[in-house]
Amino acid sequence: IVMNGRAEYAAEQNFIKQVRILKLNIPHSNHVEKVERYINDHYSDPGFSMKRWEEWKKPPEIQKEMQAILNDNRLG
């Protein structure tokens, strides 16, 4: 939810062109846990004080986990 609000704010401030919010119910899995751990270990939440939109860099092993999440949920 927090990231959705930040993405909408970024679009309003012209940091990004547009945002589409998708409501998904993705079950917590080992893949989700690995991605969450990576994000929490490498990034902090600046809230709405951001000056620009920062796209999180995803190393190949995290991209693989994200693709597995999409495949597991028939989204990719």
Rank of each mutant, 00 (worst) to 15 (best):
R37Y: 06
S29E: 03
D45A: 01
E54C: 00
M66D: 00
R20E: 07
M3K: 04
Q63G: 00
E36N: 05
D41R: 12
D72W: 12
E8V: 14
A11F: 04
E61F: 14
Y38D: 12
A68F: 03
I1A: 08
H42G: 01
E8D: 02
K58F: 13
H31G: 01
Y9M: 11
Q67S: 08
K17W: 08
K23L: 11
K64I: 04
N40M: 10
H42K: 14
Q63M: 13
Y38Q: 11
E65Y: 03
H31A: 15
M66F: 03
R6K: 04
P60E: 14
R37H: 10
F15Y: 15
I26L: 15
Q13G: 01
Q67M: 13
E55W: 14
S29H: 07
V32H: 11
E33Q: 13
R6N: 02
Q67F: 06
E61S: 02
Q63H: 02
K64L: 12
N30V: 10
V32P: 05
R37F: 05
I39P: 00
D41K: 12
E36A: 10
G47I: 10
G47S: 06
A7W: 02
L70G: 08
S49N: 13
E61N: 06
I69W: 11
W56G: 00
N25P: 01
I39Q: 06
I69K: 08
E8M: 10
W56N: 06
N25W: 09
L70A: 14
Q18C: 03
S29A: 09
K34H: 08
N30Q: 13
N71F: 07
H42N: 15
K57T: 11
K34P: 01
D72M: 14
Q63R: 15
R74P: 00
G76K: 07
R6H: 06
A10Q: 00
K17T: 11
F15W: 09
D45G: 00
K23Q: 11
K51L: 09
G47H: 11
M3V: 08
D72H: 12
D41I: 05
K57H: 13
S29F: 07
I1K: 12
L70R: 13
F15K: 06
G47D: 07
E61K: 05
E36W: 07
D41Q: 14
A10M: 04
K51Y: 02
L75F: 13
Q18L: 09
R20V: 09
Q13N: 11
D72S: 12
A10W: 03
K17C: 04
K23H: 14
H28P: 01
V19T: 14
P27G: 02
M50V: 03
N71A: 10
K17A: 10
